[in-house]
Design a protein around this nucleic acid. Structure first.
Length: 419
RNA sequence: GUGAGUAUAGCUCAGCCGGUUAGAGUAUCUGGUUGUGGCCCAGAAGGUCAUGGGUUCGAAUCCCAUUACUCACCCCA
């Protein structure tokens, strides 16, 4: 049997309403905040991601689905959206049409990681990017956007974490200090963290090893090394969040794995999913656009994982949607009247009703059971004695009341069903 | 990439210190009297016990390998 590729999932009809609900909610809230949807191709030139996200990041160095196409071009299935949005922004000179571009997306992403709870190789993100302003109000707006969406779905158990990475110069200064602090403690660090000394020193803060945690307790803090401007920016973000009634924690160890972040970074974490607890993550990237060949333009954005969102909903018991229902199920009393029953289906469907009927030549009892299973509000019986009197029978499946109606009074049936 | 655990009907699982024809619940289908659902009742169908090898008179059950899934590390949404 051919099965779906490891780490990919079919979204089955029984689950699709949850996806519709989330997607519609995202569109609605994005509209509230005046973000416009941007759809980009699922694959891009590989160079876009290696330059945008950073050659040395895990995403680029070991997780991308990269292949050479038939014209010898190296292409990559998008592992994240920001680089694509920026590419599109530059390519279409969006900055010339509008000073500030507020964009959102809902799209599949691809990363070849080992799957686990809340982590897949094809997964879906929604997110937003605001390009053209470094106003800290926009940083806060991103957090607000994500938080409002999670909130209105009914999720509790959320923590908003924020941090500031400052500008590259202050971060480098800090890294040097941190290295200095750790230089005489290297032997005590875990093997994993020793590697991180070279690859990604800030990550040592995330270590779950006891000895690492002890050492890092007294380590210098990034926030103490921020330049003045970054500090002012960070303070303003906090102020906006407080004003919007968003509870948040400052997490000086919050480092994101993509190279392009500057200043504000944030995550919204849920305690209701497994160890992959980040529902969304994002931050400011004031240097990325220039780095990808555009005019120097500040930007800020976030991305949220839909599978993780749905997992949290499942575990918290929210998002209980009404099951699908039908307006009319047409039951055929005589097999000879198949065509008439079908004609009714055609007519009522054209009027906008949800209509189903039997295609398996089944008994009346079986048709009724089917009508019940499909949550049909009404059943229309076609055939039998009533048909001989030029009538059909309309049954209300909730009250069980039945009414005979003249065979060509489609309008009467329509009126009853519309209430 | 590393580690641990799991693999029996569409789904959730029992059976496993080796011993006739592999079970339950649920879902599906068909009935329960002239032409009508839900609840209830009866029946039917549905499985190469993940795959390949080994031990044995005999393997769903024990051993090995492979694959897949799950969780965790790493990293991230």
């Amino acid at each position: 049997m051919i099965k779906a590729i490891t780490g990919t999932k079919d979204i089955l009809p029984e689950d699709i309403n949850k996806w519709y609900y989330v997607e519609n909610l995202v569109k609605k809230v994005m509209q509230n905040f005046n973000y416009k949807e941007l759809r980009t191709p699922v694959f891009e030139e590989t160079g876009l991601f290696s330059r945008g996200i950073g050659e040395a990041t895990d995403i680029v160095s070991k997780e991308m689905y990269t292949f050479i196409d038939r014209s010898s071009l190296s292409v990559t299935l998008k592992p994240e959206m920001t680089a694509s949005v920026v590419r599109s922004f530059i390519e279409h000179s969006m900055d010339k049409k509008q000073n500030l571009n507020k964009l959102f997306y809902i799209s599949p992403m691809f990363r070849q990681e080992r799957p686990q709870a809340g982590r897949f190789r094809q997964f879906h993100q929604f997110g937003a990017e605001a390009l053209g302003s470094n106003d800290p109000a926009l940083d806060a707006e991103m957090i607000l956007l994500a938080y409002d969406i999670f909130n209105s779905i009914g999720l509790k158990n959320l923590v908003v974490k924020i941090n500031s990475l400052g500008v590259p110069e202050s971060r480098e200064r800090y890294k040097t200090e941190l290295k200095k602090y750790l230089s005489d403690k290297i032997d005590k660090l875990s093997e994993e963290s020793k590697k991180r000394l070279e690859t990604n020193i800030l990550r040592i803060f995330d270590s779950k090893e006891y000895q690492d945690k002890e050492i890092m307790k007294n380590a210098p803090i990034l926030l103490d090394y921020l330049d003045d401007e970054s500090l002012i920016q960070f303070e303003a973000v906090k102020k906006h969040l407080t004003a919007a009634n968003i509870p948040f924690e400052i997490d000086p160890t919050l480092v994101r794995g993509l190279d392009y972040y500057t200043n504000t970074t944030f995550e919204v974490v849920s305690g209701s999913i497994g160890s992959q607890s980040a529902l969304c993550g994002g931050g400011r990237y004031d240097l990325l656009i220039e780095q990808l060949g555009g005019k120097a333009t500040p930007g800020v954005g976030f991305a949220a994982g839909i599978e993780r969102l749905l997992l949290a909903c499942e575990n918290e018991g929210c998002l209980n949607l009404q099951p699908d229902s039908l307006d009319i199920y047409i039951v055929r009393l005589d097999n000879e009247l198949k065509n008439l029953a079908y004609q009714y289906a055609v007519d009522f469907r054209r009027k906008g009703f949800n209509v189903e009927l039997d295609y398996l030549q089944r008994s009346i009892k079986a048709q009724m059971r089917e009508a019940n299973k499909l949550n049909s509000k009404y059943v229309l019986f076609v055939g039998g004695d009533e048909y001989k009197n030029n009538e059909v029978v309309l049954k209300n499946m909730v009250s069980s009341e039945q009414k005979n109606i003249s065979i060509d009074s489609i309008n009467e049936i329509e009126n009853i069903i519309r209430g």
